Simulated assay, not measured.
Amino acid sequence: MNGRTALIAVSAVTLLGALYYFNTSSPTLTMSPSTATEGVPGLEFKLSQISRSPPSLLVTLKNNNPTTPFTLLKWNTPLDPQAANLGLFTLVDEEGKEIPTEGLKVNRLMPPSAEDLVTVAPGTEEAHEVVMDKPWLPERKPAKYKVSVKGAFSGVWDKYGGDIGTGQLEAYVDSPFHGRAFESNVVEMRVE
């Protein structure tokens, strides 16, 4: 009985030690809270409705930085062609109930192509239309929803797209602003 108790005690201590080691010594397991909550200085997403039937939003990314261009990987942002399917948008109905939006997992070809990037020069903006006619949207019409978008950038560089090499694209998670948060305004979307 003493040998069995000792074996259990040694196993428990080893397991606890391993858990402590992996949770405190590996910087790749957790993202720094300051990095995750801070956005990219000067970049701002804004939503506005441009159509009620089908309901469509104009997503505008503005670079308010007076001197720095930003090139971003569109993946998992509102500028992504799959944006409406990625679970980035939050919709709240008139009763205050959040509409569940299923985020699809999208397989991507590596390295990212030039079409996967967008450069926003200082003081300019980039706009993209997102049609909100997906199966997860309730069919009740007319209706009103409060809509916003929130997420994290996959890759952002503080330079023009032509200055980003293939190696940097392949290692987009090492870009200067990878994982930085973005969040838009809240807009009322009417569906007819």
Rank of each mutant, 00 (worst) to 15 (best):
R4V: 12
G87R: 02
R108V: 03
G17N: 05
K141S: 13
K134D: 13
E94N: 13
A152I: 07
N63W: 00
N63F: 01
H128R: 13
L15Q: 07
G42H: 01
L43C: 01
F177A: 00
L169Y: 09
G96C: 06
S113T: 15
S53F: 11
G42N: 02
T90P: 08
F89D: 04
N23L: 09
K46N: 13
M1A: 15
Y21A: 12
S148Y: 00
G103P: 04
T30G: 09
A181T: 05
E139R: 15
G151W: 02
G17Y: 06
V59T: 06
E102L: 14
A36P: 01
A127C: 06
K46V: 11
F153L: 03
D163I: 05
A6R: 14
E170H: 09
V59G: 01
G161D: 12
T30S: 14
L86C: 06
V130M: 02
V120D: 07
E125Y: 06
D174I: 05
V156N: 07
D93P: 05
V173P: 06
V106L: 12
P112H: 03
P81S: 07
M189R: 02
G39D: 00
P81H: 07
E95I: 11
E44G: 03
S32R: 10
R52V: 12
K105R: 12
S11G: 15
S154L: 10
M132W: 02
T14M: 15
I164N: 04
S48M: 04
S53A: 14
T24H: 13
K159M: 09
G155Q: 01
I99A: 07
T124R: 14
A6T: 13
I99Y: 03
E102D: 12
D80F: 06
T30F: 15
T30V: 13
L43T: 00
T35E: 13
R108L: 10
G151S: 01
T14Q: 10
V147L: 00
K134I: 10
V118D: 01
P142R: 02
L19E: 11
E94R: 13
E95Q: 15
P138S: 03
V187Q: 11
K159Y: 05
S26C: 10
A12S: 12
F70S: 07
N107V: 13
E183W: 00
A127N: 12
F89R: 02
P66D: 06
K146A: 11
P41M: 00
D93T: 02
K159Q: 11
K74I: 09
D174P: 01
A83D: 05
M110C: 02
G39A: 01
L73Y: 11
T71S: 12
F70L: 08
I8D: 07
P122T: 02
G42C: 01
K134G: 09
R140P: 03
A36Q: 09
A18G: 13
Y21E: 08
V131T: 14
P81L: 08
D163A: 15
E102R: 14
K105E: 15
